[in-house]
Nucleic acid binder design. Structure first.
Lengths: 192, 192
DNA sequence: CATCAAGTTGAGCATATGCTCAATTGAACA
DNA sequence: TGTTCAATTGAGCATATGCTCAACTTGATG
C-alpha cells in the first residue's frame, strides 16, 4: 500500500466513509466497507479513528457542511423569492434522494448515538439560520410578509423533513412533484 | 412451557414483539428478545412467522392500528376545533415519545424493507384520511375555512413527522412545547 | 548506513443475529 | 390405553460486525 501522511490519510478515510454511507445507508455501512474500498487493512481505520461511531459522525458532519455550502452558494446571488423556489426544486431534484437518505438515516440514528446527535443539532441550527435569513431577506425585498421568520423557518424545515421521509417509502402517496407543490403552497401560506 | 393453541400463541407473539419494539427500538429489536420475554425456544417464533421481517411488519401494523383507533375514539365526540387542539396535545404528551419513536423508526426502516413499507403506506393513508376529514368537519362546523383539506392534511402530517423526528434528537432545538406551538400556528395558517 | 518513529497489516477474538432441524412433549381423540 | 400430530425445544450453523495487537514496512533523520 502507498504510504501517506497522517493528515492526508485521515481525510481520505473520511471521504471514503461519506461515499460508503451515501451508497449503503448509515445503518448498513460498516468499517469493512470503508477499508475494502480503500484497499487497506482494518487496523488502519482504527489507528485514525478510535471507533466507527466517531468516523461516522465526522463523515456526516463533513457531508452536511458541504451540502449546506453548496446550497448557500446556489442561492446567494438570487433574489430571495427566486431562491426560495430554487430551494423547493433542489429538495426534489436530489438524484435518487441520496442526500435526503443520508440526512434522514442520520437523524434516525441520532436518536441512539450521542455523537451523531451533536452533529445533527449543529447542522439543523445552521439550516434554520440560513432559511430564516432567507425569509427575512424576502421581506426586506418586499416579496413576502412573514411576521415570525424563525417560526416559519422551523415549520418549513419540519415540513421538508416529513415530506422527504415519506417520499422515500416505496409506493408512498407523496411523490416528488406533490412534495414540491406542498412546499410552495406552504410558503404562500406563510406570506411568501 | 404451557401449551397454547396456534392462534393464541401467534397473537401473543405479536403482542410481545410490539412491547419489545417499543422498548428497544425497531433496529435494535431481535428475535431473541421476543423469545426470551416469552420464555420460549427460538424455533417457536419461526414456526409461526417465516421471518423476523414478517413478524416485525405485523407488529408495527397492529401497533399503528390500535394507536389510530385510540385517537379516533378520543376525538370522535369532540367539536372539530377542540379535536384539533387535542391532537396537537396528544402528539406531545406521548410519554417518553415511545409511539413516535416506533413510528419514525419504522418509517426509516421502511426505506429498506418492502413489508414495512406497505404497512407504513397504509397507516399513512389512514392518518391522512382521518385528519382531512377532521379538517372538513371543522369547516362544516364553521370553525375553520380551509380551501384544500387534503393538501392541508398532508402538510400537517409532514409537519408533525418532521417536528417529532427533530424532537427525538438529544438536546434538539425543538422542545415538545415549541412543537405544540408550531403545530397550532400551522393550523391557524391553514385557516383553522 | 543505521536508527527510529510512524504508517500499515491481517489473523483473530468477542459478540450478535436470523434461521434450521432432528428430537421431544403433551393434549385430544379413538 | 394407545395413537397421532401439532406445539415446542435448543443446540448449532452461517453470517456479520467492531475492534485488538503483535508484527512488519518504509521513509526520514542524523
Amino acid at each position: 500500500m502507498v504510504r501517506m501522511s497522517g493528515a492526508d490519510r485521515r481525510q481520505q478515510i473520511v471521504d471514503t466513509a461519506i461515499e460508503v454511507i451515501l451508497r449503503r445507508g448509515i445503518a448498513q455501512a460498516a468499517t469493512r466497507d470503508v477499508t475494502k474500498a480503500l484497499g487497506v487493512g482494518s487496523g488502519l481505520l482504527h489507528h485514525y479513528f478510535p471507533s466507527w461511531a466517531e468516523l461516522r459522525a465526522e463523515a456526516v458532519r463533513r457531508a452536511a457542511q458541504s451540502e449546506m455550502a453548496e446550497v448557500d452558494t446556489m442561492i446567494a446571488d438570487l433574489p430571495a423569492s427566486t431562491a426560495i423556489r430554487c430551494l423547493a426544486d433542489w429538495m426534489v431534484e436530489d438524484d435518487d434522494m441520496r442526500h435526503w437518505r443520508l440526512w434522514l438515516n442520520a437523524q434516525d440514528e441520532a436518536h441512539r448515538d450521542t455523537l451523531l446527535a451533536e452533529v445533527m443539532v449543529t447542522a439543523l441550527r445552521n439550516w434554520h439560520r440560513m432559511i430564516a435569513n432567507l425569509l427575512r431577506r424576502a421581506c426586506e425585498e418586499g416579496s413576502a410578509h412573514i411576521p415570525d421568520a424563525d417560526a416559519a423557518a422551523w415549520r418549513l424545515i419540519a415540513l421538508m423533513d416529513g415530506l422527504a421521509s415519506t417520499m422515500l417509502v416505496k409506493d408512498a402517496p407523496i411523490t416528488p412533484q406533490v412534495a414540491r407543490d406542498l412546499i410552495l403552497s406552504q410558503i404562500k401560506l406563510e406570506g411568501g
